[in-house]
Design a binder for these strands. Structure first.
Length: 480
RNA sequence: CGAGGUAUAGCGCAGUUUGGUAGCGCGCUUCGUUCGGGACGAAGAAGUCGCAGGUUCAAAUCCUGUUACCUCGACCA
């Protein structure tokens, strides 16, 4: 049995935080660096990121976006132009003050996000309505001087993607903001197999400098929320601060309307915490660096390795990410490592199987073990991977849905949040003061509210906390 | 940033109270037997005890400082 092995990871029920840390370290995804708050992403972890990048990039291209790259360093004066933005980010910006031995005349900020430097370029790039819309995305790293860090979930330096678009009209920019949060939602569900709740952030929680922030929130196994991606409608705030204008068809000088949107390596943290169990990771096939691992049994016996190599080559040429574990460890050891690393399908091939022209397939998500014929194995493996992908989403959705508590009773609220049972969906007054009191009393923050167009509040409905007339339907939870 | 904890071989740990030869398990190397859920035997290699000072004949152990990491809180678009 795998008992001793399993004991190496703290169980989720015992200490979820420790389970998480154990899992990222023991699955060879990350290592700690010598730099405070920064992590080293090892090949296995980075392999997941590469797959995320590719899937996402395809979606960006399909919606007309292009990639570009902007500088890491931002002159202080540039960063300071948009007041709300400055206020939001100032506490976590790291500064470069010297170049070699020379003291710089103006400090340079290491980008915490790139709105400011990109806007300063867009000012020159946009002259006419013919230049719009401008739809650009950047893959890069950003740095935020965080007090407390945790691999993937919050690190000082992290890898992300940030889209920055410019439009002629408010309507078009709003539509872009909504389109991109929907791209994110579709990606989270169909690629990461993570069901998300999409909606707006409260005034307090929205992006510094945005008019409206759309967010997608996922529920982790311990009932906490994780913000997996955001899309901001910036209105003309940055356009005015950075003086981005265009000449309209009618010959009038107008400020542009902007959006920005981003997702980061944090999604990998979500992947771990939504799907993982006490045996380790469970990766959805679409982001699994290895989708099928073949484990030869009694490899020394004649014909086994030859057959295994034949099958590997066939699956690989069918486009399946497959490898063979031909190390000398015992089979049981390899099985457990497969489970720990979350490899979706394990294929055991021994002399008995080969004799019967079959292999033994084991699903990581259900641990179900089934014989499969070597005849047409390419198709049956693809089908199995698709099934796993879908089943993982449905399983995650089912376990999330039963942990969303719709209520207008503050006692229920306190119980759900206090005991980390999940999310509370409740009517809310939309006042920051009330939001702060709720946080003070329960530790819960506002995560996400239904967008206005979808909000129907019955007559006489009151805020779950202060009793004032409700204006929004809000999801509350403790968050990462 | 506050409170608490940890740092000794690649990993997990003992040794620190009471200063006196650097230890254990796993992993690693070599050989042999094994091989369908963490195999077994034999022989090996590997650590300036996080870092810097101090006390002492003598420091992993005592003192001071410092750094990194972990947990909880605060902070965090």
């Amino acid at each position: 049995m795998a008992k001793e092995f399993v004991e190496q990871i703290t169980s989720q029920e015992e200490n979820f935080s420790q389970w998480y840390t154990d899992t990222v370290l023991k699955t060879d995804m990350v290592d700690y660096s010598l730099v405070k708050g920064c992590m080293v992403i090892k090949p296995y972890g980075y392999g997941i990121w590469e797959l995320i990048q590719k899937e996402m990039d395809d979606r960006f291209k399909a919606t007309g976006h292009k990639n570009a790259y902007f500088p890491l360093l931002i002159p202080e004066s540039l960063l300071m132009k948009e007041a709300e933005h400055v206020e939001g980010f100032a506490p976590e910006v790291a500064w470069v003050t010297k170049g070699g031995t020379e003291e710089l005349q103006e400090r340079l900020a290491i980008r915490p996000t790139s709105e400011t430097i990109i806007c300063s370029m867009y000012k020159n790039w946009v002259q006419s309505y013919r230049d719009l819309p401008l739809l650009i995305n950047q893959w890069c790293n950003v740095l935020r001087w965080e007090k407390t860090t945790r691999p993937f979930l919050r690190t000082a330096e992290f890898l992300w993607q940030e889209g920055h678009t410019v439009h002629a009209t408010k309507e078009e920019a709003l539509a872009e903001t909504e389109k991109m949060i929907d791209v994110y939602r579709e990606f989270a569900e169909n690629v990461l197999a993570i069901p998300v709740i999409v909606g707006n952030k409260s005034e307090k929680e929205k992006f510094a400098g945005a008019v409206r922030t759309y967010t997608m929130e996922a529920m982790m196994h311990d009932g906490r929320a994780l913000q997996m991606g955001t899309s901001h409608f910036l209105g003309q705030n940055f356009a005015k601060s950075y003086d981005i204008t265009y000449l309209s068809k009618e010959g009038k000088l107008e400020h542009v309307w902007q959006t920005s949107w981003g997702t980061s390596t944090r999604m990998i943290g979500g992947l771990i915490m939504v799907h993982g169990d006490n045996r380790g990771l469970k990766l959805p096939p679409k982001v699994a660096p290895v989708q099928v691992r073949i484990i030869p049994i009694a490899a020394h016996k004649g014909g086994v390795m030859e057959k295994v190599e034949e099958i590997r080559a066939r699956l690989a040429s069918a486009g399946i990410r497959v490898d063979v574990d031909d190390r000398e460890q015992s089979a049981g050891w390899k099985f457990n490592e497969c489970e720990m690393k979350g490899i979706p399908v394990r294929l055991e091939m021994g002399p008995r199987d080969i004799e019967n022209n079959q292999a033994m397939a084991v699903r990581r998500d259900t641990l179900e073990k089934m014989p499969v014929s070597l005849e047409g194995l390419e198709d049956s493996m693809k089908e199995l991977l698709d099934t796993i992908q879908k089943d993982m989403l449905e399983a995650a959705r089912a376990s999330r849905d039963e942990r969303i508590f719709e209520t207008d009773d503050y006692e229920v609220f306190k119980d759900v949040v206090g005991n980390l049972k999940g999310f509370v969906k409740a009517p809310w007054c939309n006042e920051t003061e009330c939001e702060l009191e709720i946080k003070e009393e329960t530790g819960a923050t506002t995560r996400c509210m239904l967008v206005d167009e979808e909000t129907h509040i019955p007559e006489g409905c009151r805020c779950i906390h202060c009793g004032k007339p409700a204006k929004k339907i809000m999801y509350f939870a403790k968050a990462y």
